[in-house]
Amino acid sequence: MIYMDYAATTPMSKEALETYTKAAERYFGNEQSLHDIGGTASSLLQSCRQTFAAMIGGKEQGVFFTSGGSESNYLAIQSLLNTRNGTHIITTPIEHASIRNYFRLLQKQGYEITEIPVDRFGMIQLEILERSITKQTVLASIQHGNSEIGTLQPIAEIGAILQKYNVLFHTDCVQSFGKMPIDVEKMNIDSLSVSAHKIYGPKGVGACYINPQVRWGEVFPGTSHERGFRPGTVNVPGVASFITAAQHILQNRQEEMGRLQELRTYFIKQLQALSPEIQIEGHSISCLPHIIGVTIKGIEGQYTMLECNRRGIAISTGSACQIGKQEPSKTMLAIGKEHDEAKQYVRFSLGQQTTTEHIDAAIHAIATVRNQFNRGVNRT
């Protein structure tokens, strides 16, 4: 089967698997234990912390390892809110479900949530962001790269505006880490979240960064792990595997992103030649090279996905965290699609194993699905 759903998850790399096995054998101790076995695990964890901090231009004191991107989002936002008195939060309607759902909970607790709109390409307008800031604004959470259409927000400019008004800035970098350059200081980021399984690392491992100069408060009082940031014994082998995967992807980032951009360009040209009823969604320039969001006029995305699956092509109808809810994509609705149009969306996401031959096979599958669908419509 041809896998074209890398934005949902990636297979673990050989290097990450080898590191996990070795670390699980040699560094199995609880890093909080005071004996030598615990000490060796603690040393490895500290080395991973330093390495990750360097990857994002941050400081090791600000690195906290978690179970993944969603937990990093929850803990970052709540721990920052615990230190501030403001009750107004700014976000967008195209954030990951973990953030949208958490903000709904905060709204019930008395916070005012402002979703600044995005244009038809999924971009926010900086002037609208600035106008939305009030004296009560405490935090803004705006993703770096969208998981459904790939649009990249101007994070450095956003951070500069928020810093001017002393508003804390959290950004979800789960899709962009390892693909785009990230420097927390240059981009004026107070906190960010990443996940290992998006970059050929293990599932159940992620990281949160909070600028050490920014105060945060414990979400779970009395917690001893990760300096009180989260409960639970740290998955040291998983963290080591994550860092190995990150090192490997960053070493080859420029070359691999160039290759994926070429594949993306080729894929889009083939799709556009196939039919004018196929619409490429998202920003054409400020975008992640591995994500191609598509709407096919008249055909529900779930039908396209299932038919492609029958033909050996694994694609998606959006964020895996929302699949199965039978609802149109929130991102599609936010960029101006009607309800029925939004349900016509499918996502192709490329990765290390993707080839031109895979894209040709996907194009052939889509053409077959369209022809089959149209014949069925004409018969009725």
Rank of each mutant, 00 (worst) to 15 (best):
L44K: 02
L44S: 05
L44F: 01
Q46P: 03
Q46G: 13
S47L: 11
R49A: 07
T51Y: 10
T51F: 13
F52N: 00
A53Y: 12
A53S: 04
A53Q: 12
A54G: 09
A54Q: 15
A54S: 15
I56L: 08
I56R: 09
I56Y: 13
I56A: 01
G57Q: 10
G57T: 02
G57N: 07
G58K: 05
K59C: 13
K59Y: 12
E60D: 13
E60L: 07
Q61V: 09
F65N: 04
F65A: 00
T66H: 08
T66F: 08
S67L: 11
S67P: 00
G68H: 04
G68P: 02
G68F: 00
G68T: 00
G69V: 03
G69P: 11
S70A: 12
E71Y: 14
E71Q: 15
E71A: 10
N73C: 15
Y74F: 11
Y74W: 09
Y74V: 12
L75Y: 09
A76P: 11
A76F: 10
A76N: 15
A76W: 05
I77W: 08
I77M: 08
I77T: 05
S79G: 04
S79E: 04
L80G: 04
L80D: 03
L81Q: 02
L81N: 02
N82A: 15
T83C: 10
T83Y: 08
R84G: 03
R84W: 10
N85F: 10
N85Y: 11
G86N: 00
H88F: 09
H88M: 05
H88G: 00
H88L: 04
I89Y: 08
I90V: 01
I90N: 00
T91C: 11
T91P: 11
T92A: 08
I94F: 04
I94Q: 03
I94H: 05
E95T: 08
E95N: 13
H96P: 11
H96F: 09
H96C: 14
S98F: 08
I99L: 10
I99A: 02
R100I: 11
N101Q: 12
Y102W: 11
F103R: 05
R104W: 08
R104Y: 11
R104D: 11
L105R: 14
L105C: 10
L105K: 14
Q107D: 10
K108L: 14
K108V: 13
Q109S: 12
Q109R: 14
G110N: 00
Y111G: 00
Y111E: 07
E112H: 09
E112Q: 11
E112A: 06
E112T: 12
T114I: 10
T114L: 06
E115C: 04
E115V: 12
E115T: 13
